[in-house]
């Protein structure tokens, strides 16, 4: 008699094993909270965030200047900001064409940008404290983020900016945040705060790759490039250097411009100022995002980033003319 353990399962046995597996696995799953209480809680938080979103929308639109930056609204319709928390970690990145993101404190924001976000968080916190309906008790406060997706001229997601608007208490469970920067289907860079769902993912092959410029506000810019690279943001119409910085060991730097810079304008260029650890041409420039697509207003009009073929620029094929 053959060893049944080594047999290829017949259909009856296969189905029986499958059904047993499904039931065993499913039976081990229990909701993490009383279902309806959880639903109500999430729904209430979404309503709170929607109110924040409306408040934040004007500011974001002012920063974006109606140009290349697309925002996404919490509650799917109501504004430009989005909040997310433990209960809906995919909500934001779904809209930005990414999946792996769960929200908590933000490493993306450093220096001036972080100070600004912290101040905004304080302001929103205070606003909630004073809201007539007592919108946020200390027990159910969650982080509220404003998320802006930036699309490059190829239709890819060039940047995903997460700004902390309001923090009434960190959610439990140790969330992580992964900020993904992509073009087309290719991941350029991902930044992460360790947490559940995997924490950080660092695509090593891109860490030495071309830079990526990201707006944190018309005056606040972030750049991702080779570590220890000095970068300048220049107004090419005048040659004026409006911002400069040096990327840290993670290849990240924030810069505060001396005047507002709008993405999508030809005059907005990033110039690598010195060699740093990057080999190749001494300087290369590129326009920043040039695709105008307002997700919150008309999501259907936005091109699907994944439908747009895109070749990652390299030091070999990249030139100021491209």
């Amino acid at each position: 008699m053959p060893d049944t353990h080594d047999e290829v399962p017949g259909e009856d046995r296969l189905v029986a094993e499958m059904v047993a597996t499904m039931h065993a696995r499913a039976d081990a799953v229990t909701p993490s909270a009383t279902p309806y209480a959880r639903f109500r809680s999430v729904r209430a938080r979404r309503a709170q965030r929607a109110r924040v979103a409306v408040a934040a929308a004007a500011a974001v639109l002012a920063l974006a200047g109606g140009t290349a930056w697309a925002g996404y609204a919490a509650g799917e319709r109501s504004g430009v900001a989005a909040g997310f928390d433990d209960a809906e970690p995919y909500k934001v990145t779904e809209q930005c064409g990414r999946q792996e993101i769960a929200g908590t404190e933000v490493t993306l924001l450093k220096g001036e940008a972080k100070a600004k976000a912290d101040a905004a968080a304080d302001a929103y916190d205070e606003a909630f404290r004073q809201s007539p309906d007592g919108a946020a008790s200390s027990a159910d406060r969650q982080l509220v983020y404003e998320v802006v997706c930036a699309y490059d001229k190829f239709g890819g997601v060039a940047g995903l900016d997460v700004r902390l608007l309001w923090s009434g208490g960190m959610p439990t469970g140790g969330n992580g945040v992964v900020l993904a920067f992509t073009r087309g289907t290719e991941t350029i860079q991902e930044f992460a705060v360790p947490g559940r769902r995997g924490g950080g993912v660092w695509p090593a092959e891109h860490r030495q790759g071309p830079w990526l410029l990201s707006e944190l506000g018309s005056r606040n810019w972030a750049v991702f490039a080779t570590p220890a690279t000095r970068v300048e943001l220049r107004d090419t119409s005048t040659g004026e250097v409006v911002a400069q910085g040096v990327t840290d060991t993670d290849g990240f730097a924030t810069m505060v411009a001396t005047k507002p810079i709008m993405p999508g304008k030809a005059a907005t260029t990033l110039v690598r100022a010195d060699g740093g650890r990057v080999d190749g041409p001494g300087a290369w420039t590129a326009e920043t995002s040039a695709l105008s697509c307002h997700v919150a207003q008309n999501r259907d009009s936005c091109p699907n980033p994944w439908d747009v073929p895109f070749t990652m620029p390299t030091m070999e094929n990249w030139s100021p003319d491209k």
């Binding site: 559940r196 995997g198 924490g199 950080g200 993912v201 695509p203 090593a204």
Partner: peptide
């Protein structure tokens, strides 16, 4: 296609 995944879930 990630070259490395330093953090394990």
């Amino acid at each position: 296609t990630w070259a490395q995944v330093p953090d394990n879930a």
